[in-house]
């Protein structure tokens, strides 16, 4: 009989993965048929080969208790990582909901990545269809922002723009100059001012602000300075200008596109100086420095 043969390594690993990742717990997973209406039902269904009989009985601790140790370690490690990486969602929804949210997330998007900080990359998509977002409709955007912060934190590093190289650019070359934006910079556009939540992380009044959060178009700049991630709201013109620079438009084209957008001409020079100083602009390509 097939069932008396030792399980293959694949059967054993698939079974063990199933039993320790079932959010209902090891004992329930082993004894109760899952509710057929559960989302991601496929992940609750036991693999064909039951391998419980191949775990050694080592009294006094039961096999279930032994499996529980692995189940707990699996979930605790991921919950701790999510709590650190999605700190604002954690504070907004509270500990119990966050724990359930993490369990649900792992069913929808189990980790396939080596760095545990990457596991939450689908947070926005996950929250978009989730019941938690019905009462807190800004939650998916908050998930996107917190993932953006992680990406900015880990972005590649490039050297600062050397001030002398700007002085050496002849006036005639500026028209065709193109700008390289720091790889850590992300332009965050949304329907909710979630940047306010991010910046109020240590504020005890945070929850009151959350209750008052209202939908409005928001433009934010996510950047990294001296290893620290900053999220700041920027006005629409600045945001548009940065997005044109990121897309590789030259200064001449950028000015053309900006003309007529505002009553007063935007203080471009001042903004450029600020962005060069804080490392948002990392390089300026001109005919001279390309040759």
């Amino acid at each position: 009989m097939m069932q008396h043969e030792n399980p293959t390594l694949l059967e054993l690993q698939q079974w063990m993965k199933w039993v320790i990742t079932d959010p209902r717990g090891v004992t329930t997973a082993l004894t109760e048929v899952p509710n057929l209406n559960l989302p991601f039902l496929i992940r609750y269904l036991a693999p064909e080969r039951n391998c419980l009989g191949f775990i050694m009985d080592t009294p006094p601790i039961l096999k279930c208790e032994r499996l529980d140790i692995y189940a707990e370690a699996y979930f605790t490690r991921l919950l701790e990582s999510f709590t650190a990486d999605f700190e604002i969602i954690f504070k907004v929804v509270g500990e119990d909901v966050f724990s359930k949210l993490t369990a649900d997330y792992l069913k929808a998007f189990p980790s396939t990545v080596p760095n545990i900080s990457e596991v939450g990359s689908h947070m926005e998509v996950f929250l978009l269809g989730h019941e938690y977002s019905e009462d807190l409709p800004f939650l998916p955007e908050l998930g996107r922002l917190e993932w953006a912060v992680i990406q900015t934190f880990y972005a590649d590093e490039v050297p600062n723009l050397d001030g002398d190289s700007i002085k050496n650019i002849p006036e005639s070359s500026w028209q065709n100059a193109e700008f390289v934006i720091d790889p850590a910079v992300q332009l965050f556009e949304g329907k909710w001012p979630v940047d306010q939540l991010w910046n109020a992380i240590d504020d005890t009044e945070l929850l009151k602000r959350i209750a008052a959060i209202a939908s409005r178009p928001t433009y934010s700049l996510v950047s990294r300075r001296f290893g620290v991630v900053h999220v700041e709201e920027v006005n629409g013109v600045k945001f548009y200008l940065l997005s044109l620079m990121k897309q590789g438009f030259c200064l001449g084209d950028i000015c053309e596109k900006l003309a007529g957008l505002t009553l007063d001409p935007p203080p471009l020079l001042e903004w450029f100086r600020e962005w060069i100083e804080c490392g948002i602009i990392r390089k300026i390509h001109t005919k001279e420095n390309e040759s």
Partner: peptide
């Protein structure tokens, strides 16, 4: 040890059966 299967990572150090077949693998 093993930490995942079917492309999924459980971020947990999981035990192996110590068989000749697993040894070869």
């Amino acid at each position: 040890c093993w930490t995942g299967v079917n492309g999924e990572n459980l971020h947990d150090l999981l035990p192996l059966p110590y068989t000749e077949e697993v040894l070869d693998h």
